[in-house]
Design a protein around this nucleic acid. Structure first.
Lengths: 206, 206, 206, 206
DNA sequence: GATGAATGAGGCTTCATTCAT
DNA sequence: TATGAATGAAGCCTCATTCAT
């Protein structure tokens, strides 16, 4: 039936519209200081209408996190998959993440802030999905590191720690960028991040 | 006058007691899900009494952050000051920060979570102090890097970025540790952190 | 015109279907805890369609009460009319009411509960009709009592009080039965009810 | 300590004040149509203050029911206990209940209405206590009947049914009185109620 | 006629803050 | 000075009713 399809499409459209507005407000004010009324006003829906699409404020919030994060994860994986050379693969991952941060600055400021951890017992299900997705992402990066080690391109360190360190460097770089008021392109920092991660800051003894 | 001194001492003592309990609760439940009544109960004071010592919930919260963070900052500086060798200086900073995280796991889980950014317009003053302190800390680390560059021990990269990268590696390592249930000593990871920061993950071509 | 008749018939049929489902839900959850959406779902109609047949939730509710109660009243009158002997007439009335309760346990548990009195100012008209119907019923029973008195079969007490007392005995017996989980036939209690009403509980002095 | 006692007394006083006002409003409008704001306004407290004394709207409601009902039950038992003669004992029970109804007309109209059955899952504990108290009351009346049977004053019918029948007659009489606008003293009907219950309405064959 | 998505007023409850004792 | 009862604004969510399709 065509009708059902259109319904489905409209349903997703409305959800997307609300999520889009919600990101901005949540990013600006945090989970607890954002009211459903505000989201309703911003998205042009009535309060009750939002509850037709999302079971609760927490569900709306977690749903938003899940969608965005998965978009980022899959973006990273897709871009990395195109490369075989391990160094270039790492570079691609950095590029992909920086790209996402630039395009989703509002959202990222939420996520880095970390309101997501404050949620009560409400939407355990969605939260678990979020954790699982994150674990899967880390596992992916870890697998890349392991691959690099096997190939003899990377040192034989704990791949999990390596993945974590890379994430740390990327994060702190992105965070700094997010808190700046005048933003030079984040992409400019790619060589730096990759360099530090691969070769460190110490000058080689010659 | 002796009396004034004793008063002052008692005043600070009471504040410290409350802050000590507050850390635990804020860490466990986040800023918004913690009530003044809870803090009062835990610290053995009456709600009204807390308001004699702290102007508001936000002030109490921010005060706590400031104290703890400054303790950490000054700890790091003190330990780093004892060394001249740049590499050892960096190692000392990592040690100092890991030490703080181990001793203040509860507090750190708050901070990493980032509730501090969600605060409303209330205590701008205190928040600015916090930002300033953080800036001062970063400037210190940056100065260390610059020193290393001048001394020819570190590469000629942007020292601010280097400071940021180090912070990132430390943070992600600490975060990971904080979310683990079975905690092996965080100190075990020091060589790894220092190594990655100094020499990167790439295997040297020989 | 035939068409108008068919319409009328369909209209009543749809109303009946909805009322039938509504009884069950109202009985189980009470007026205020029942939603129009539930009734719609249970009866297979759309919410809007119900509003084509009933002006409001209160009208739907009151309509249901009126229909059921009138069915009971007329049943009682019809059965009583067949008898001339006053004692048998009373017995018939008890039988008829017990029969109704057995066949309409769900509905009766609503009525005994008494949600009908909680209704707001909405449907005064319908409520008055309900009151009038009840008054008519009581008047009928009262008339039976008066008839018995005139015939010399009953004592010369206030017939209204007698009617009320009979109703009370029947009600408490039915209520008790309705709250029981294992239901022995209510009919078993007919002799007891009639006996108590006619001859009381006191042992005759011989 | 004296202080604790005074606190206790004041606490109960405040509760009583609120309950007193709550009865009136609940009686007039039913559970669901009464708002906490109304009760607050009527009792001169702030909304929040009511929540210091009662955990929820349902708790407030159920508490009220429990208190009043127990007052009635114990009044009945006390008065009945003073008599040995079974007939007079029954009369005393009727008197006691009528007395309560006259003094607590507002409350009784609630109870007869029966909102208490509509309550959701909230205060199961209190509700069970209510059921238990009612069961105890019925058991008491039943015991009186059994006693009368053993003493040879009452017929050998099922004592539970007898208790139920008496309750029914009393109830319907009280209900009728409660719905009347011009109220003649309810006490006038005592002889009638006792008479019907003991000797029935049928004229003795002489 | 039939549908069911959209509406938004209104209810219960929480909790930071105050102030009389 | 210390207390903790009192306050009331504000938030999340529900659901009877409407109306465009």
């Amino acid at each position: 039936m065509e009708k059902a399809k259109r319904k489905e499409r409209e349903y997703n459209l409305r959800r997307a519209e609300i999520l889009e507005q919600a990101v901005k407000i949540f990013a600006a004010k945090g989970f607890h200081n954002t009211t459903m009324a505000e989201i309703a006003r911003a998205s042009g829906f009535a309060v009750g209408s939002i509850y037709l699409l999302f079971a609760s404020k927490e569900h709306l919030y977690t749903e938003m996190l899940n969608q965005k994060l998965n978009a980022m994860y899959s973006g990273i994986r897709k871009l990395a998959a195109r490369e075989v050379d391990i160094v270039k693969k790492i570079e691609r991952m950095v590029i992909s993440q920086f790209h996402f941060v630039e395009k989703n600055a509002e959202f990222c400021s939420i996520f880095i802030r970390g309101d997501h951890l404050t949620l009560s017992e409400g939407s355990i299900e969605l939260r678990e999905r979020m954790m699982a997705d994150y674990a899967a992402h880390i596992a992916f990066v870890e697998a890349v590191m392991s691959e690099g080690i096997r190939a003899g391109a990377l040192k034989g360190m704990d791949p999990r720690m390596m993945a974590s360190a890379l994430a740390g460097i990327i994060n702190s770089c992105a965070s700094k960028w997010l808190t700046m008021t005048e933003r030079t392109p984040l992409m400019n920092h790619i060589p730096f991040v990759v360099d530090i991660f691969l070769k460190g800051v110490k000058k080689d003894a010659h």
